[in-house]
Design a protein around this nucleic acid. Sequence first.
DNA 1: GCGCTGATTCGACGTATGCCAAAATAGATG
DNA 2: CATCTATTTTGGCATACGTCGAATCAGCGC
Lengths: 83, 83
Amino acid sequence: MFKALGDPVRLRLFSLVASHAGGEACVCDISDVGVSQPTVSHHLKKLKEAGLLTSERRGTWVYYRVEPAVLASMGHLLTPAAP
Amino acid sequence: MFKALGDPVRLRLFSLVASHAGGEACVCDISDVGVSQPTVSHHLKKLKEAGLLTSERRGTWVYYRVEPAVLASMGHLLTPAAP
DNA sequence: GCGCTGATTCGACGTATGCCAAAATAGATG
DNA sequence: CATCTATTTTGGCATACGTCGAATCAGCGC
């Protein structure tokens, strides 16, 4: 889990998904974190494999949301990034 | 910080220091984590640079202890590794 | 069925990272 | 001062990791 969040891009992606309205974020919403979109997808897949995110396809778009248990464990650790 | 704990060896080292008697551990106490001792020193230095550990030289031996603020932030996140 | 947009996978490249052996430093002890 | 143990630093190597471009897959609208 620490290894999954060790990469700055992944930490940013996780923080973005966690702080997005409704608790979920489409890939198209978070495609400007400084890397190309295939890389974003790659990192999201790693986060999903680590059990931190779950993905759900609704029509054309894919929505990611954080695993609730992880959110509970994080608690105030993420607060500086999720106001 | 997540990057510092991303490496399994560093996570193990941090956990060992955190769970050691007295809250501090000599380097000689934790020299069997699967890697050579210079590598242990290397990782301890990285953990110190990341602000997770502090080092204090007492005579011949060097004792490492965890930054209290980090311990408070971790809380129950480390409990499975620090009984 | 045919294009169109969005998302993922594949292949390859460059960089970063962890690892060890050997050498160098720090302090204690004779 | 010489020496010995404990720790850190250095140099170099192998591997893993992140990144991108191009190609591929998945639905949707015409």
